[in-house]
Design a binder for these strands. Structure first.
Lengths: 215, 215
DNA sequence: CGGCATCCTCTTTGATACTG
DNA sequence: CAGTATCAAAGAGGATGCCG
């Protein structure tokens, strides 16, 4: 990207991360940690492979990304964020908070990847009962199932399934994210096609803002 | 900008403000409030006029900017941010904090505009003596002089001059900003060409982080 | 398959000129 | 002052080829 040539911190930041796709590559590396080239491609649907290669080189030159040749168990190169790259997390968080306003009206054509759930979960969910027993929510949407684990005051997200989750949420991404962000009650979400199994009451434990109808 | 087509709040935000120049236009409107077309051009050195026109239309369509035909004292159209546009302030702030790391090594070719001083001032300066008498710092750099007014716990910035400022800072933008952000002591800055008039002690009142040498 | 590099087409940008 | 029109150059997107 051509520099703006302005002695302003915002312009300087955009000189480095203002290119198309750049901040989304940082998002992927923040969410996944060290990633292979193809993992990044999968998390960035729509990116042209030459662009991904070019951006990674720019990010490396800019000191935001570090390549690492992983030894034989992985036998490939992994891309990691440097400290400077990780420092972009507040930027991504602010952008995500601002962009959340566009989530309720999806076009229906968007791609969704399950690991993106970590964003709304850490933004909207809290463990409202830190002394309570651990609970597990399995979310079935996007490209693969994901787990939200609530225990001891912490809410964590990871990909995978659980043998016997306390609650299962299954539906399209806008509906599931609507429930997790508190913008839809479970009743509203069910009307939009959400399927649930197990104890819907666990949502009351994690939901940050209690919606109108949490039944 | 072509949409990323991803059901992710960050991608949605970048669909709207990810275009080149867009966030800098928002910066200008945040810093200046309602602005004329030519004011924006002046605050965005390097932008092509067709691009400014196109971006303003996109921002208006996106609901971030509102045009207003000002009555005869101004007799022109003014561009304002809407609430949604103003909500981008935390994004700009996060970007600015991240980008501040690039300020100490300026290329020497960058353009600087005095009203951009408001960013580092609000980020780095605090009134460390809210009960003290008001003090005024006149900053002579960039395209026009600016004033930093410290009184009653508040630090404000505006363009203009004062009849008898307590302190005058004059030099190139990197040196002045270095002092205001606490990255340079006054002694270091003087070595880099900063000229001062008046009581250098007032810097001790406003400086958020006390540098090694504040003499 | 993972990790790119190349080629080609289409869109966006930037510089400048021009108009109400 | 407040833009629109024009056009060459750069960049994005998509397909495909190559190589360990």
């Amino acid at each position: 990207m051509r520099s703006y040539n302005q002695y302003c911190a915002v312009a300087k930041a955009l000189d480095v991360v203002g290119d198309r796709w750049t901040l989304l590559i940082v998002r992927e590396l923040l969410l996944r940690g060290g990633s292979r080239y193809t993992d990044l491609q999968h998390g960035l649907p729509g990116i042209a492979t030459n662009l991904l290669g070019a951006r990674l080189k720019e990010l490396e030159d800019g000191g935001l990304v570090r390549r690492e040749s992983a030894p034989p168990p992985v036998a490939t190169t992994l891309y990691h964020l440097t400290d400077a790259g990780r420092d972009l997390q507040p930027v991504l968080a602010a952008l995500g908070r601002w962009g959340a306003r566009f989530m309720p009206e999806p076009t229906g054509e968007e791609v969704f990847r399950s690991h993106w759930l970590a964003f709304p979960v850490s933004e909207f969910l809290r463990d409202g009962e830190p002394e309570g027993p651990p609970v597990t929510i399995e979310v079935r949407t996007g490209d693969q199932p994901a787990l939200i684990e609530v225990a001891g005051g912490e809410v964590t997200t990871r990909l995978g399934t659980a043998p016997s989750p306390d609650l299962v949420l299954e539906g399209d991404a806008p509906t599931v994210v609507g429930v997790l962000s508190g913008m839809l009650s479970l009743a509203e979400a069910r009307r939009l096609g959400l399927r649930t199994e197990g104890s819907a009451a666990v949502m009351r434990r994690v939901r940050y803002r209690v919606p109108a109808d949490a039944s």
